[in-house]
Computed example of a mutant assay.
Amino acid sequence: MRKSPSEAYTDYIEGVYLFYNIDNKTDHWIFNDGFPSIILFPDRSNKVCITIDGKESIVESGWVDGGVMKKSYLRYFEELDYILIIRFKPEYFHKLFSLKPSFFKYRNIATLAEINFDIEFLSQVYTTNSIDSKIDIIESYIKTLMPRSDKVGLLNSAVELINRTKGQISVSNVIKEIGVNYKWLERNFSMYMGLTPKEYIQLQRFISAYINLHTEPNDLLNVAITNGYYDYNHFLKEFKDFTGKTPMEYMSAKGLLS
């Protein structure tokens, strides 16, 4: 379920998302679609095991992620009623938390401490059981970080265009629509998102296909073609690149095959 941020924060926060009834019986494939995100558990003591390309780490309370995440899975140690995700506009996340633009270039997962999330506000978040109160506390914290005056950059416009087309747009058309040159676009994507415009387009296309896979598990060719892949083999290659499994292996593990 998505909740829109309060109007004062729409330049900074893309949206607040709630995922309910989180089970701990299977591994969950995780990804980031270019929007730096803060993920919070219901309770400060909740933990998960995150595995990235075979390397495991234990995370408590919540985490931060960004950039392109491949072959990344997590397992919850207990069933959770929900997880709360705050997705930030890429250009402003780094400014709010005074992070270098390259923060996610060499990592995809960070702890809340690594972005210097204020410990007092974090304690307030976990003191209340009300989700709405948690969101209010987070927004009040963001308010303390916001610059006195600023404006949404062209990067956000480019990101929103690619998202709206679900990755079925060329870099040249993005440049034409936004009115910038390639060097500017590549530099800003690299600085604030840790990937190139082409990689971000590829990521959005795959995410769209991944979602369609769950609704059309028996027609993989149609899923591939509908989402702009040349053919099934093209889709197969990207699926293995992102998840480490073939579509059939993944669907079999998730019980999606009829």
Results as ranks from 00 to 15, higher is better:
residue 36 P to V: 01
residue 172 S to K: 15
residue 208 S to E: 05
residue 51 T to Q: 06
residue 237 K to W: 07
residue 159 V to P: 05
residue 71 K to V: 13
residue 85 I to G: 09
residue 212 N to Q: 11
residue 251 M to T: 01
residue 183 K to R: 14
residue 111 T to C: 08
residue 199 E to H: 05
residue 255 G to T: 00
residue 55 K to I: 14
residue 55 K to Q: 14
residue 136 D to C: 06
residue 177 E to S: 15
residue 114 E to P: 08
residue 218 N to F: 11
residue 182 Y to V: 08
residue 21 N to I: 02
residue 143 K to C: 10
residue 153 G to I: 04
residue 52 I to Y: 03
residue 251 M to G: 01
residue 89 K to R: 14
residue 258 S to E: 13
residue 168 Q to E: 09
residue 76 Y to M: 09
residue 254 K to L: 08
residue 37 S to L: 03
residue 184 W to I: 05
residue 135 I to Q: 01
residue 235 F to Q: 06
residue 161 L to F: 05
residue 179 G to M: 05
residue 63 W to S: 07
residue 34 G to F: 00
residue 180 V to D: 05
residue 153 G to V: 03
residue 229 Y to T: 02
residue 33 D to S: 11
residue 134 K to S: 00
residue 158 A to L: 04
residue 10 T to A: 06
residue 140 S to W: 13
residue 198 K to V: 10
residue 82 Y to A: 06
residue 12 Y to P: 03
residue 233 N to L: 14
residue 167 G to T: 07
residue 177 E to K: 15
residue 228 G to P: 02
residue 155 L to K: 00
residue 1 M to D: 08
residue 75 R to L: 08
residue 142 I to T: 02
residue 199 E to V: 02
residue 155 L to N: 01
residue 228 G to Y: 06
residue 87 R to K: 14
residue 178 I to M: 07
residue 205 R to M: 01
residue 169 I to P: 04
residue 173 N to P: 09
residue 15 G to D: 00
residue 167 G to C: 06
residue 204 Q to L: 11
residue 138 I to P: 05
residue 29 W to Q: 00
residue 77 F to E: 15
residue 199 E to G: 03
residue 67 G to C: 06
residue 31 F to Y: 13
residue 220 L to Y: 00
residue 16 V to I: 08
residue 211 I to K: 15
residue 188 N to D: 12
residue 59 V to E: 09
residue 186 E to I: 10
residue 242 F to R: 07
residue 44 R to L: 08
residue 102 S to V: 10
residue 245 K to Q: 09
residue 252 S to D: 10
residue 3 K to G: 02
residue 121 F to K: 12
residue 192 Y to F: 11
residue 128 T to E: 01
residue 142 I to Y: 04
residue 227 N to S: 02
residue 141 Y to K: 00
residue 238 E to Y: 10
residue 231 D to Y: 08
residue 148 R to L: 13
residue 246 T to R: 01
residue 218 N to G: 12
residue 148 R to S: 15
residue 221 L to Q: 12
residue 248 M to G: 08
residue 241 D to S: 14
residue 255 G to R: 00
residue 186 E to T: 13
residue 31 F to D: 11
residue 28 H to R: 00
residue 179 G to R: 06
residue 138 I to G: 02
residue 247 P to K: 03
residue 209 A to I: 02
residue 206 F to P: 04
residue 120 E to R: 13
residue 149 S to T: 12
residue 49 C to W: 10
residue 24 N to S: 06
residue 207 I to Y: 08
residue 93 F to S: 08
residue 112 L to R: 08
